[in-house]
Simulated scan of single mutants.
Amino acid sequence: MLKWIEIDKKIIEGNIKSIKSVLKKERLMVVVKSDGYGHNCIKISEIAEDMRADFLGVMNIYEADVLRKNGIKLPVMLLAPSLTEDMDIILKNNVIPTADDINFLKLLNKKSKRIVDVNIDVDMGLKRWGIELKDIEPFVKEVKKLKNINLFSISTHIAYTPYKNMVEAREKLEKFKEETDRIKKIYPSVIVHAANSLVFLDFPQFYFDMVRIGNLIYGIYPSEIYLKRPNNPVKLGIKRPWKFFAKIISIKNVKKGESFGYASEIVATRNMRIATIPVGYSDGLATSPMENVYQITEGQKYWGVINGKIAPFVSKPAISHTLLDITDIQEARLGSTVSLAIRRTAANSDIPRIYI
């Protein structure tokens, strides 16, 4: 096998267990949008069921439909609003839609022959969807007039980046709490939720009734920030279940001063050993925006690891291969395994996933 991804199911189970150990009475939603962040939404959902999570979160009804067709029974919530054309499939799959439009709910009320649980989302500044905070109470009162609609939950998503807007995030969460506390006095059964992975780590006072965890389930967090803090995920027990590997398929010796690569734009700064791996940007490798110029300095941004040693990229990845500088890794040979970093949701779905 030339390239593959290894996903450790035991680590994912352990991450869910670690998150649940912090919770008291709060429910846990495991977010499996974007094919479980590239880990396979079905397998992650099956693990979530085994670990007794309370809900699954997806972005849209089409992701939910995949879960239902593969036998997933856990309650599923759509985290983004749907279109009226999707109502039949929403009702068929018995999922919880998110809404911010009373006309959508009125039509859903009319079409349904049973009571449908719904989630109302509140916009706290992202401006992607959601009702305004000041409109929660009148909106909820309109919803309660619909006999086939049950106000199941109220949510928000705070735009929060650690160390950048902690004060602003806390203020928004406090305002959200004030409004939802008023709603819960009238409708005490309503579930309130706002805590994604970062809010979960930094604002435990705002877990409300449920936490929605995506990134931490998959061991994703800004390590350069959290590993220096007392609430770092490693101490919590969070590990990374994902490893991406490729094998060296060619090795070339390049003399100092020799030019090579597309348009001969790369000039060797020393005598070099150059390895080729069969992974490129079509696989999702190094897909962040960069200038369309090949530079010897790409290794400052991206690298592989061979036997624990760094092998810098010599240039940007091509469509299906990448060059690595293995000059200082004498043991590297044809067939040697290279560990690579890749954005998980960008990893080509055709790359084999091996679950261990």
Rank of each mutant, 00 (worst) to 15 (best):
F176G: 11
E85Q: 08
D209L: 04
I277R: 01
S259F: 02
S349D: 05
L79R: 13
K247N: 15
M124T: 15
K316H: 06
I217G: 07
L334Q: 04
S153M: 01
L198K: 04
R344I: 05
W129Q: 10
W242L: 15
E171H: 11
I42G: 07
I16K: 13
K25S: 10
I7A: 00
D50M: 02
G38H: 08
Q330A: 10
S21N: 04
I42W: 10
R128K: 14
F206E: 07
Y187F: 12
K113M: 09
N119M: 06
M77G: 06
I136T: 12
K172R: 15
W303Q: 06
I186Y: 13
I329H: 02
E178Y: 15
I310K: 10
F206P: 01
K113L: 08
I186T: 15
D325P: 04
R343M: 10
P289H: 00
E179N: 11
Y226S: 02
A169Q: 10
I306M: 01
N215P: 12
I319A: 09
M290K: 15
F208H: 12
S259N: 14
L216R: 02
G14S: 13
H193T: 15
T345R: 06
P97N: 11
K243R: 06
R128T: 14
I120E: 04
T98Y: 05
G257K: 14
Y226M: 03
T345E: 15
Y262D: 13
L324F: 00
L133I: 13
V95L: 01
A275K: 09
G261N: 11
R353K: 15
L28R: 09
S197H: 11
